Computed example of a mutant assay.
Amino acid sequence: MASTRPVTDEERKEIRRLHGEGKSRNAIAKYLRRSGRTISKIVAEMGLSFDRATMTAVATEARSMDLAARRLRLAEDLQVDAERMRRQLWEPAVVFNFGGKDNTFEKRTLPEAPAEMKKTIMGAVGIAIDRSLKLAPPKDETGTEEGIALITNLMSGLTAIHRARQEQEATEGA
């Protein structure tokens, strides 16, 4: 048998609050110990509804915003990674070698990374920057071409250093 007790003003306020929080009709009914029909009637009187399409759209929009924020944080982290890797180009670098008939280990610290290592580092820097730009493209495209030109020039310079180094090693080995 259905309850015949009148709905109080306090319950109406609570229904409006819970509806505003996105609670479902059944959740509100259970919380207030009222029938779903009573809750639907009161919500309709308030000019509100339990339109699932609207609620789904709001939830989808919230999820999209959360994902956008996560992509932005990841893009920022990739930029930090690229900057950190790029600094390695000019820092002392440890190089090592295993091998020989006695399986020896040898290592040296060089004042900066060798050309081949710089080439690898620049490739990783380029990938990190590229991925960060794909995750969070700049709103103003005016800086993109300069950035690409900078990376292209850096890669060309490192390639030239690498070739010169290989030619030098080939000359010394002959």
Rank of each mutant, 00 (worst) to 15 (best):
residue 4 T to Q: 15
residue 4 T to W: 10
residue 5 R to T: 11
residue 6 P to Q: 15
residue 11 E to I: 06
residue 14 E to A: 09
residue 16 R to D: 15
residue 18 L to D: 09
residue 20 G to T: 10
residue 21 E to Q: 15
residue 22 G to D: 03
residue 22 G to K: 06
residue 31 Y to E: 14
residue 33 R to A: 15
residue 33 R to C: 09
residue 36 G to D: 10
residue 37 R to D: 15
residue 39 I to A: 08
residue 43 V to A: 08
residue 51 D to V: 13
residue 53 A to N: 12
residue 54 T to P: 01
residue 57 A to N: 11
residue 58 V to D: 02
residue 60 T to Q: 12
residue 62 A to H: 01
residue 67 L to T: 07
residue 69 A to D: 05
residue 70 R to S: 00
residue 74 L to H: 04
residue 76 E to P: 00
residue 76 E to M: 11
residue 77 D to F: 11
residue 79 Q to C: 03
residue 81 D to A: 13
residue 82 A to W: 00
residue 85 M to R: 09
residue 91 E to A: 12
residue 93 A to E: 05
residue 94 V to F: 03
residue 94 V to N: 12
residue 96 F to N: 14
residue 99 G to H: 03
residue 100 G to Y: 03
residue 101 K to T: 10
residue 103 N to S: 14
residue 104 T to I: 06
residue 106 E to Q: 09
residue 107 K to Q: 15
residue 115 A to M: 02
residue 116 E to F: 08
residue 120 T to Y: 02
residue 121 I to Q: 01
residue 122 M to H: 01
residue 123 G to A: 13
residue 125 V to G: 06
residue 126 G to H: 07
residue 134 K to C: 00
residue 134 K to A: 12
residue 135 L to Y: 02
residue 136 A to E: 06
residue 137 P to C: 05
residue 142 T to W: 01
residue 144 T to P: 00
residue 146 E to Q: 09
residue 147 G to T: 07
residue 149 A to T: 12
residue 151 I to Y: 10
residue 159 T to Y: 08
residue 160 A to W: 00
residue 162 H to V: 04
residue 162 H to T: 09
residue 163 R to Y: 09
residue 163 R to M: 10
residue 165 R to F: 06
residue 173 G to V: 08
